[in-house]
Write a protein that binds this DNA or RNA. Sequence first.
RNA 1: GCCAAUGUAGCUCAGUCUGGCUAGAGCAUUCGACUUGUAAUCGAAAGGUCGUGGGUUCAGAUCCCAUCAUUGGCUCCA
Length: 627
Amino acid sequence: MRILQLHCDSIEYTPKKKEIKSAEENVSTETTRLEELVVAFVAVEKDDDSSIAQDAISQIKNSMEKIGCKKLLLYPYAHLSSNLAPPSLAMSLLKEMESLASGLDVSHSPFGWTKSYKVHVKGHPLAESSKVITKKENIPSDETESTDEELTSEALKSESKIKSFWYIMSTDGTMTPMSEFNFSNHEKLEILSKYESAKKRSVDEPPPHVALMKKMAIADYEPASDAGNMRFFPNGRLIKSLIEQYVTSRVKEYGGYEVETPIMYDSHHPSMVSYFNRFPARQYNIDSEGKKLFLRFAACFGQFLMANDFQLSYKNLPYRLYELTRYSFRREQSGELVGLRRLRAFTMPDCHAFCKDLEQSIEEIKIRFDLSQSVLKDLGIEESDYEMAIRFTEEFYNENKKPIQELVKKLGKPVLIEMWKERFFYFVLKWEFNFIDNLGKASALSTDQIDVENGSRYGIEFVDENNVKKNPIILHNSPSGAIERIIFVLLEKAAFDIKQGRKPQFPLWLSPTQVRIVPLKDEFFDICNSLANKISSHNIRVDIDDRNESIGKRIRDAEKEWIRYIIVIGEKEANSDNLSIRDRQAGNVRELSFDDFIKEFEEQTTGKPQTGLNMPRLLSRRPQLMV
RNA sequence: GCCAAUGUAGCUCAGUCUGGCUAGAGCAUUCGACUUGUAAUCGAAAGGUCGUGGGUUCAGAUCCCAUCAUUGGCUCCA
């Protein structure tokens, strides 16, 4: 069976006259117009049978799901093949396909008629495809049984290649099937496991970080943009910028070289075409002077295309390229977007390491594993906050048990394993850290992958010891995951603290205001201002609450902004060398000399990026942000 | 994208079921008084196309339809 499949804005067809005796009866010769649909031109061939029809319709369904279209027109089209089946068989198989297309709004144009038609095809990369479907050997079905008998078995069969086998790997390297693992001391891992293996969870409250991101004046939805494209207020931009700077500095320290690549690419570029066919994505499309451009959904393209132009020797490897994408775009389904957790535009640190062989890539992945853990820790995300998942092919596991077990050992707690019988994606192994939030949802943070396919796809080559050209193995690491998602985690953790009756806080180095000075009366303002100058000369973000409010009110407001240090200046302090410092974390007021205070402060922020206040120093000059 | 819920002042919410006085409150804002010792000083003023568009009605925040956004579930997450 041969199929030409087109994703169309519209089609109009008019049956003209019967072409063969056995043509379909009772056909209206009116013009039929359909909109927003997939048209499948179908030629049924000699050896086709019912199983081919089933296979065909499941493939069509599959791709229609990917492009999010529900209407299908089956259009008998003999000209695709020179080996046609007899009309009776063709008609019955077409009918079968139509009846199998459950869940789709399906129709067909009359069989055996000459028809005129007008078709308007959409321009996106997945709009056009052709399929040739022939009989294949009966593949024995996998041992995992389907729990949902109602799904069409044919659809399941065609997906059997990506059937997953779930295990838990303990720190001693043993693998226990997930269903047999005792999760009693691993509550979060159980949540991740259930979440990943698609068990239902019902929650009916909004995620706490959404309220906090507004209340703390960090970020908000921008109604004038597309959903999932956020605006960041001064506080949010400051926090985001510091995290970006920090992750970048750590990757450079590890050996990544920072580059910058375009955010949009030509979907007809040869590398893109094959990438798309391999991994259909929902992306933003832009038409420009006849070019069909799309907004990148990762930094891979730019870096691979760049590496393609490098003259690489095995002596150069591993070679690491790094980019922090502001932004990567994925047009996620609207129903999937949530606050800062799942966005359509997000900032992603993405570091690729080009390695000469598997051995080198395995050494490299260990280094990056440590880097990722360390970066998260410094961002305030501890090991206990996340669970690890490792996904690999069975073949890779059988040949590389030791390094996999080593990763689990490094983490020091059991890990969720997903194993595939065959390689379906471009990688043979992928690990990631998943944060489990207040509502029991898992979000991937750090991740690394061993990519064995894109080296050749993008024509990236290096010359080995024997003067032979080879394609490198490529690792794809994001040491932190999306920056927005880090903020999401910090806010979810804060929300958890609030729930537990603890004071929420940001890591000191990320606080928009680190120190607030409160003059007791107007007459102390000048002292406060020169104190603020002195403090900010140490790269500390300090502001002054000069508003005409009671001292109680101003302390309360500072607490509500999660400001760590509050310094009240009154009669006593004006005549003393010491400062009265209210430490929000300790919950007390201490007398400290200026130098001791600076010392205490700097001990907590060494090694972290610094930047000045991103708002007026005087609170009286600051607009209130109530969002 | 599908199903459901929600949408009233800058923010948080009442009022909607059962249509009917000038749509209310707290916080924030502005003005005035107070000049403060570690989580909310007092008073006044100003602030609203009730998400948007249509419909039913003498009359719509309230009932009906459509649409947009958010949130939850499904699907998805290279």
